[in-house]
């Protein structure tokens, strides 16, 4: 008996994989049904539906890059402190001192790549008309995921706390100041007042809520850090679950039911 057979016949192996190797048709079906990760897929798909020239694989790559970002992001969190005092130096240390300092690069370029792949995924879905009934709702979920991906990227942009970061975020967040009615330099905000007291001012408007202060500073860094590492990823993970579930339920990757 070879070592391979010994392992495959052991009680431990059999408790994990409760069927023979997927070499015949029956077991290739069973493996898809018994594995929690694989069962995101159906058991069989239309052949034309998985042709690379048709699907481009971009949705799958976006999900894979999300996983890459999660793993590298968690690793980076071990060395990064979101305070004015430490943030920049921690990034410097990650670049110059840490072993495998390439992690920050993986995280940043992975994020850029993810923005591109999610656009291309949307592009493909549009061009094959895959948003058409009965899959309208899932297209909407996808649009929200696109927005959240951009927000993830945007909040992450601030964390190195360098000149590139602070000014990109200053410019970006100042747009919130111009929100109609809710931003203190937005149209109509000056009309919202009780007597002489203005309701919307620089300490109460939409931008203040986003930054946690009146200027991009330590409070903002902390706020964006929490959004970037916890709040938005959780929302994205939840919506990805909905998105995948609906892909299955609305007809699968190969076309409508």
């Amino acid at each position: 008996m070879s070592v391979g057979d010994f392992i495959r016949n052991s009680q431990v192996w059999k408790s994990i994989f409760r069927h023979p190797a997927p070499r015949d048709r029956r077991n290739r079906v069973v493996v898809m049904l018994t594995n929690v990760f694989l069962h995101l897929h159906p058991v069989s798909v239309r052949k034309s539906g998985i042709a690379l020239s048709y699907t481009w694989c971009m949705g799958g790559l976006t999900f894979f890059l999300f996983l890459v970002e999660t793993v590298t992001g968690v690793l980076l969190m071990f060395y990064y402190r979101p305070t004015l005092e430490h943030a920049y130096n921690d990034i410097l240390a990650l670049r110059d001192v840490a072993t495998l300092g390439v992690l920050r690069e993986l995280h940043r370029w992975g994020a850029h790549a993810m923005v591109i792949t999610i656009w291309l995924h949307m592009y493909r879905v549009f061009l094959t008309g895959s948003y058409k009934p009965p899959r309208e709702f899932n297209w909407g979920v996808g649009v929200i995921l696109l927005v959240l991906t951009l927000l993830l990227s945007f909040t992450g942009y601030l964390l190195p706390w360098d000149q590139l970061a602070i000014w990109a975020i200053t410019v970006g967040s100042n747009m919130a100041r111009a929100t109609p009615l809710l931003g203190y330099e937005g149209p109509g905000a000056k009309l919202l007042k009780i007597g002489d007291v203005e309701l919307i001012h620089s300490g109460s408007d939409a931008r203040f809520l986003l930054l946690g202060a009146r200027f991009v500073g330590g409070e903002t860094l902390l706020r964006f850090y929490v959004l970037h590492c916890v709040a938005i990823p959780l929302a994205v993970a939840m919506l990805i679950a909905v998105h995948f579930w609906r892909v299955r339920k609305d007809g699968g990757i190969s076309g409508a039911l």
Partner: peptide, 22 residues
């Protein structure tokens, strides 16, 4: 795309494509 209506099993046709893509 409508020419090849036949179905194939996800294991191995799709899962291996996905693995190579990753």
């Amino acid at each position: 795309e409508k020419e090849e209506e036949e179905k194939v099993l996800v294991w191995p046709d799709l899962v291996y494509t996905e693995m190579i893509a990753m």
